[in-house]
Amino acid sequence: MPRTTLVSRIFLLTCLCAALMYGQASQPQTPPATLTVSGDIPSQLVLKAEDLSKMPRETVSIPEQDGTKIEYEGVPLREILKRAGAPMDKELRGKALASYILAKARDGYQVVFTLAEVAPEFANEPILVVDKRDGKPLFGYQGPFRVVCPNDKAGARSVRMLETLEIVRLQK
C-alpha cells in the first residue's frame, strides 16, 4: 500500500472517530430510566423500567380538574422498599418507625414520606411509584417515574421525574 494512501486512511479514520465522539457528546442527555434506592439499607438497589414492570402492580384513579379521572399504574412504594431491604411488615416497629424516605426528582425537588406512611398496617391507601398514565408510559416532565399519593389533598408530594429514594433511619 502506498504510504500516502495509508496516511490518508489513518487521517480519515481519525476524523471519523473524532466525529463519532463529538456526535456522541453533542447528543441531548437522555435521563436514565432508572430508579435508585439508597441510604440505610443493606445495599443500593437500581431498578429499570423493565424491573418495575415485573413487580406487583396496582392502579389508582385520580380526579382531574376537568372532572375526568386519570388512571395511574405502577408499583406500590412498599414493594420497592421491601425489595431494597428497608424495614417493613413485622420489622416496622420501635426504632424503625423513626425512619423516612427522601424522594428526589431529577430537577432537585425533594419530599419526605415516613416509612409508616407506606406500610398497609398504618396507611389506608398505598403510595405508588407509577410509570403509566391512562395506559401509556409517562413522558415529558412527568416521567419516566413519578410518585402518586392518593390520600394527599394537594399534589405537591407527587414527585415527578423521580430518580432516587433515600432511606434514612434516625435510630438504629
Partner: peptide, 15 residues
C-alpha cells in the same frame, strides 16, 4: 418540536 418538549421540562423544573 423537540425544542418545545425540552422547554416544557425546563418550565416545570424546580430551578
Amino acid at each position: 418540536s423537540d425544542s418545545a418538549k425540552r422547554g416544557e421540562i425546563l418550565f416545570f423544573n424546580q430551578h
